[in-house]
């Protein structure tokens, strides 16, 4: 095994690792899959992860004198369950079918260059999901409709600000404020379930994936990144609370 080959493998696994962590896959799965890829290619892989960076060492299985270590930045991709599933399957395929590095690389490039979700589709589906939450919490048809359009406005605001690279904490505060303020118009209709519309209008912002990943990471022993993810999720929840508090203070003169 040559140094050049190990460097090539390290290049690829670094990309693989950063895509998986960036897409919101929990750490133990990323580590497991990367090690599996390494085994398929005949190298040992060691990984240390943190919130923004990861350290990767690849060395020959039999000859530890050939090795490559690097620190890589984790890009901020949108959460993607598709990448999670596809890239995990790729590691198994590489292991089971004894694929070469070139074959794995080609397959990886094909998987990550699949078309992304249509933003209008996501906008409508998120709004429908929130309207459904409203129904689950006991909202009537008018509360559901108000929640739908309030989410439409809030989510559109979020998409617009994110495209303009506004700080994501500010994006969360503004989106929560706008969505809850629009939902608060249900109060003027005098319907019984107006407060359900108000409460459910910000649910699309709840950072479910970082919360779940944080807990999984901690239980799997990746304490540092687990706590980082939970703190990050907590910050986002605080931002939602700030946005919603703004609405409540304006509309109801109190937070309850």
């Amino acid at each position: 095994m040559t140094q050049e080959y190990v460097t090539e493998i390290a290049d690829f696994i670094a990309r693989y690792l950063s895509y998986m962590l960036g897409a919101g896959v929990h750490t133990s799965r990323v580590v497991r899959n990367s090690k599996r890829l390494g085994t398929a290619l005949g190298v040992d892989v060691s990984i240390h992860t943190s919130q923004k960076t990861a350290t990767l060492t690849v060395c020959g299985k039999d000859d530890t004198s050939v090795m490559n270590t690097r620190v890589l930045d984790i890009p901020a991709f949108p959460i993607s369950f598709e990448w999670n599933a596809d890239l995990s399957a790729l590691s198994w395929a590489a292991y089971d079918k004894k694929m070469t590095l070139d074959e794995i690389r080609m397959k990886f490039d094909a998987l990550v260059s699949k078309p992304k979700m249509n933003p209008v589709f996501v906008l409508f589906m998120a709004s429908l999901a929130n309207a459904s939450f409203c129904r689950l919490f006991g909202g009537d048809i008018w509360a559901m409709l108000v929640t739908f359009t309030a989410t439409l406005i809030g989510f559109f605001t979020r998409q617009h600000l994110t495209r303009r690279h506004v700080n994501h904490y500010i994006v969360f505060i503004v989106s929560a404020f706008v969505a809850s303020l629009c939902a608060s118009t249900a109060l003027t209709l005098g319907i019984d379930t107006a407060e359900i519309a108000l409460a459910t209008s910000v649910l699309y912002l709840v950072p479910g994936v970082p919360l779940i990943n944080g807990v999984i990471d901690i239980t799997d022993g990746h304490i540092q990144i687990g706590i980082s993810r939970l703190v990050n999720a907590l910050m986002l929840i605080v931002c939602i609370a700030i946005g919603m508090s703004g609405t409540l203070m304006l509309v109801k003169d109190s937070l309850l």
Partner: peptide, 20 residues
């Protein structure tokens, strides 16, 4: 589009007002 989605929201309020 911002003005448009605000109008859509207002229309939903208006639809409920037809009945309520």
């Amino acid at each position: 589009f911002f003005a448009f989605i605000f109008i859509v929201h207002w229309s939903i309020i208006a639809i409920s007002k037809i009945v309520l």
